[in-house]
């Protein structure tokens, strides 16, 4: 474990907590893409499938973190699609998730480190996570704005994988550890946030709201 991975995971936890708080406190999921949250839930379930296959004692934090990610993302989907369904902005959350899931699944079957079920699921989860934020960014571009709290969520969500890139550089240099698939997907994922990061740093930090087109 290194500082980059630690802060990356903390940033990821913060993002999940910010979104849950926003929906729970405002009792509304306006401005939140349910499809992105569904895709994230699929990512966690397919990536941490080992938790279900052979029950592991929850002695180490990693297992606990995996369970937190899975339960929090499923609970977020429950809030969006059931509890606060009336506030779900379905018309603007219109990016076709199939256009993300099918290519990720296909690519996972073509480019992977080992052709076995668990590894393919892990690879699918990595590829899907790289593009899972697209429906959310698409929704913001359709509505033309993002609530400040949603911007903070996106900043934390984007920072998590950006910090993981620093973690991979660290591990390459000190542990000569390389996980090419995760690195390439992580770089793509972070690049997708660049436009948002620019808007966040130039606007939200100064107390303004993000309004598109910028």
């Amino acid at each position: 474990m290194n500082i980059f991975r630690l802060f990356g995971d903390l940033s990821h936890l913060a993002a999940i907590a910010i979104l849950l708080l926003k929906i729970w406190k405002t009792r509304s999921c306006a401005g939140v893409s349910g499809k992105t949250q569904l895709l994230f839930a699929v990512c966690f379930i397919t990536r941490y499938i080992d938790l279900f296959l052979h029950f592991v004692s929850l002695y180490n934090t990693e297992k606990v973190m995996k369970l937190i990610y899975i339960s929090a993302s499923v609970f977020t989907c429950y809030l969006i699609f059931f509890k606060f369904k009336a506030t779900y902005d379905g018309n603007h959350d219109s990016m076709r998730a199939e256009f993300l899931i099918v290519p990720a699944a296909g690519l996972a079957c073509l480019i992977n480190t080992k052709f076995d079920a668990i590894e393919i699921l892990w690879t699918f989860s990595i590829y899907l996570e790289a593009v899972a934020i697209l429906p959310q960014l698409f929704l913001i571009s359709k509505t033309g704005e993002a609530e400040t709290i949603t911007s903070h969520y996106l900043f934390a969500q984007g920072s998590y994988r950006a910090l993981y890139i620093l973690n991979w550089i660290y591990r390459y240099h000190y542990e000569s550890h390389v996980d090419t698939i995760a690195i390439v997907a992580g770089v793509v994922q972070t690049i997708l946030y660049c436009d948002f990061f620019y808007l966040y740093i130039t606007k939200v930090v100064k107390g303004q709201k993000i309004v598109l087109p910028a």
Binding site: R5, D9, E62, Y69, W122, N167, H177
Partner: peptide
Amino acid sequence: SPADEKHDEL
């Protein structure tokens, strides 16, 4: 060994 091939990150 498969151990270090295992993906050890979240």
